[in-house]
Structure formats: structure tokens, C-alpha cells
Design a protein around this nucleic acid. Structure first.
Length: 155
DNA sequence: GCCAACGTTGGC
DNA sequence: GCCAACGTTGGC
């Protein structure tokens, strides 16, 4: 028996990989996460969990689409590839440090929900919400059912 | 392009 | 085990 569906938010720079890219490929291994907290969140993911797709480092940062978790966590192959930007010499196949999940496209939002607007709901979203916490750079973060509902009600 | 905030590294 | 230095993230 699998635990009930959970929700997450995943950041991506649209110049590198956008929601349109995800729509085109359908499913994408979320490679390159090199932050332990973000990795641990991916290890907690279950197939079917909901993902808010967020564009960062762009003109209008914000939530742009919805995806679903398509696999449980498995070792990120790029950590073993010497030529990859994500190569980690401290990683071995016996003891990989970095995991990823595959993420599947579900839909684009009717409009971008800008960070600026999300911030106006910071109080309702709660102090613990990493996206609206000052200085937070976490790229994979948990979202509660209530936060998910609130954020998508802004669409 | 700037810079604040954060995580990691490495010297001691 | 501390902490300064460094590199990176990401909003603006």
C-alpha cells in the first residue's frame, strides 16, 4: 500500500529546461540536483505525487505548470559522467551520492503565477514555506495539500 | 550585472 | 569542530 499523494515544488531555469521542454519530451529525469535537502525530498517522492513546476532566474519567476512524479528515486547517472557538469568525483556506483526522479508533464497553467503574487499570500502559506522564505534557494521543496490548493486557486 | 543569502570546503 | 573563504543560487 502506498502512502497518500503528496505535493512538491520543483524549480528549473527556463533557459536550461522549461515547462515547454517538459511538454515536448513528456518525461524527464530531474538530473543535476546537488543539494542534500533537495535530494532527500526526491527520495521521499512516490509515483503519482503532484509537482508544481516553477521557473527561476528569469523575467517573471513563478509557477508555470503541473507535473507528476513518474518514478521513485534512483541514482542520477550524470554524477558518474566525467564530461558532465554534474560529475561528482566523490560518487561511486557502489555508493552514489545523488538521486533523481523522473517527472512527467501534466499541463501548463492558464497563466504564470508570479512569485511576486505568491508572496502576497505568504501569511496564508505559512512561515515554513521555503519558496517565500527570505533567501531560500532550495530547488525541490514540499508543498502541503492546503498550499497546493491555495496556489492553484490563483491560476 | 549586482549582491544577499546560503551551503560546502578545507585549514587549523 | 570551528569558521573564514569560496562558489552558487536566484531575485531584483
Amino acid at each position: 500500500m502506498s502512502p497518500r499523494k503528496r505535493y512538491w515544488l520543483m524549480k528549473s531555469e527556463p533557459d536550461a529546461f522549461s515547462i515547454d521542454d517538459l511538454q515536448r519530451v513528456g518525461t524527464e529525469p530531474w538530473s543535476g540536483v546537488r543539494n542534500y535537502q533537495a535530494r532527500n525530498h526526491m527520495r521521499d517522492m512516490q509515483v503519482g505525487d503532484g509537482v508544481l513546476f516553477y521557473h527561476s532566474s528569469c523575467a517573471v519567476p513563478g509557477i508555470v505548470g503541473i507535473a507528476t512524479v513518474a518514478t521513485t528515486a534512483y541514482p542520477d547517472p550524470t554524477q558518474f559522467e566525467r564530461k558532465s557538469d554534474y560529475y561528482d568525483p566523490k560518487s561511486t556506483r557502489e555508493q552514489p551520492r545523488w538521486d533523481l526522479v523522473d517527472v512527467a508533464f501534466e499541463r501548463k497553467l492558464k497563466r504564470v503565477i508570479p512569485l511576486e503574487e505568491i508572496k502576497q499570500h505568504a501569511a496564508a502559506l505559512g512561515d515554513g514555506f521555503a519558496l517565500t522564505q527570505r533567501g531560500s534557494r532550495l530547488s525541490v521543496l514540499p508543498v502541503t495539500a492546503a498550499q497546493w490548493k491555495l496556489l492553484l486557486s490563483l491560476e
